[in-house]
Amino acid sequence: MEKFTSLSGIAAPMDLVNIDTDMIIPKQFLKTIKRSGLGVNLFDEMRYNLDGSEISDFVLNQPAYRDASILVAGDNFGCGSSREHAPWAIADFGIRCVISTSFADIFYNNCFKNGILPIVLPEDQRDALMEDAGNGANARIEVDLETQTVTGAGGETYHFELDAFKKHCLLNGLDDIGLTMEKVTSIDTFEAATATSRPWV
């Protein structure tokens, strides 16, 4: 998995609550058997007209935000389905960090498996960053995972919380399966015990 250490980039504002995974990547793009190439269809129905032309006022179509690497969004980002195609599409577009007041659980977990850092901040801080993001390409936001801080365009710095294990994996680009395989004896022991205590499983 790709590491995430720090990031300085343009942030695109999406001031909408409950942005769901159907919006992030509509189902017609789930018919792939690959993980790559979904970035062009990120937010497809908000981003393109039926004839495939761009909807000019959608944020990622505006010249200032075409190279955005951060998304600042409304509450409860990523609700809905478990599709990992959502973080795949986000990462493939080039976005490595999403900032909101809250995330849906499965989406939040999926981000960490794909080198994306989801940051939870209180409403006033998220709103301040949303305002920064509104200033377009001149306003860069800095994110540092080691110190767990986000710095807005005006220099104001906010601290964010995250699980220490998730942080460790993201900083070092660690593969979960490899880590778990190191504990295989615990799994063997558990399985053997269950075979006696709950044989119907």
Binding site: S81, S82, R83, E84, P87, I106, N109, N110, K113, N114
Partner: peptide, 8 residues
């Protein structure tokens, strides 16, 4: 019972 992503 809960839903998981593809990596999971």
């Amino acid at each position: 019972a809960h839903g998981i992503g593809t990596s999971e």
